[in-house]
Amino acid sequence: MAVALGAGYSGDMQLRMQNGHLLLSIKGALVWGAGVKGYLTFEVGYDSIVALTELVRQEMAANQYKDLEWVDGEAMDYLQKLSFLGATGIDVAFAYVRGYAIVKGIFEALTEGGRGGLIAYTLIRDKNQKAIRDWVFNLQPEALGPLLLTLCAPPKAFTPEQDEQAEVFDEEQTHLLQQRAIEKCLTWISSKANASLQFEESIIRMNRDGARPSQAGSVYCQNKLKLDTFMAERVLSLQVGTNDMRNRYRALVSTMGARLNDHCGYHTEYKGPAFAPIQKIKSTYKGPNID
């Protein structure tokens, strides 16, 4: 129903959460014609959730990734988690049928650390690359931020559960796989007209909740440093294409982050005893207030 109405009618719709269920209310006049007053309310079914999620992602992109008036906070949080699951190859309709508690549990398990390799494996090797790309392409920053955070977490060796050949990825191979996944996600979104805004907001929201913190400029610089540091590791650099991939990443970040990058400053601090100091790179932001 929501897809049939389209984005142009979004002012006549309301999406909210109630008792763990998504409820969509639509002006009666849009369904039954002029003269019908009030709203018709439907529970969003499993057969509509993917289309509704896509509509909301498109609407957010068109609205410069600002909150949508017709979607309440709880509903938006639910859709953010479902979108994250979709981008990681999980069947969104299947997860939705099992309820919010299950969706939240899966989301938290995937973002708690140590799952970056498995997620990267799906992003790089899933047979249905078009479906994965479509999820990532319009992924709201509230979901893309946690995804990037998960992908740049310290790599851990793993074995893909669905791989009958029991291929084992050691830490270096996992690190490279995660690097490839990050570069691929950024490549997918880079063709959009508002790719820079999606990128900036996603970097700012690189936390497990996808929340937008205060002092967003400083957070942008800190999180970009974290991502850059992870991508700068020249793991398995003798493999064909690995250095080209990292060069593409740097070019993508330079282009999509052009508005804020020059406002970030970095300096090295040394702590500990003089004979064995610990080196740490600190970031500073000296740009306009973007809160």
Rank of each mutant, 00 (worst) to 15 (best):
P155S: 12
A157V: 06
F230S: 05
H263E: 06
R212N: 09
C185F: 02
H263F: 15
S190W: 01
L186A: 09
Y249R: 02
L186I: 13
Q179S: 10
K156D: 00
N261Y: 10
N223I: 03
E171S: 01
A216P: 03
C185V: 13
P155T: 02
L252I: 05
Q173M: 04
C264Q: 08
V235E: 07
L186T: 09
R205S: 05
V168E: 15
A232M: 09
T229G: 03
C152D: 09
D209G: 13
A153V: 07
L227Y: 08
R180C: 04
L148F: 11
N207P: 02
E161W: 11
L148K: 02
G257H: 07
N194T: 05
R208W: 06
R246V: 01
A143V: 08
S214V: 12
P154M: 13
L197D: 11
S191K: 13
I182S: 11
A153G: 15
A181E: 03
T159Y: 00
M231P: 06
A258Y: 12
P154R: 12
T159F: 03
A258F: 11
R212A: 02
A211P: 04
D244W: 00
R259V: 13
A143W: 01
A216F: 02
Y220K: 09
D170S: 08
E200L: 06
K192H: 08
E200H: 12
V219N: 02
N247I: 02
F230R: 03
Q162N: 03
G217E: 06
C264G: 10
S218A: 14
D262K: 14
E164G: 12
E171Q: 08
D163F: 00
R234E: 15
Q165R: 15
P160W: 08
D228C: 05
A232G: 04
V219C: 08
R212D: 02
R234N: 12
C221F: 07
T255L: 05
P154Q: 13
T150I: 03
Q222M: 13
M256D: 00
A216C: 06
G257W: 04
V168G: 06
C221T: 04
A157N: 08
Y249W: 08
Q198T: 03
A258C: 11
L144Q: 07
A251T: 13
K224E: 13
T242M: 01
S218M: 02
E200I: 14
E200T: 09
A166I: 10
G265N: 11
D244G: 05
Q165C: 11
I204Q: 09
R212I: 01
K156Q: 15
A195H: 01
Q179R: 01
A232H: 09
N207V: 03
F169P: 02
F199Q: 03
K156H: 06
L227G: 05
R212H: 14
T174S: 15
H263D: 11
D262V: 10
L149K: 11
R250H: 08
R180M: 13
V219D: 00
E171R: 01
E172G: 10
P213D: 11
A258M: 11
A181M: 12
D170L: 06
Q162I: 08
I189P: 05
R234W: 00
E183T: 15
V240Y: 05
L225N: 10
D170C: 05
D209T: 11
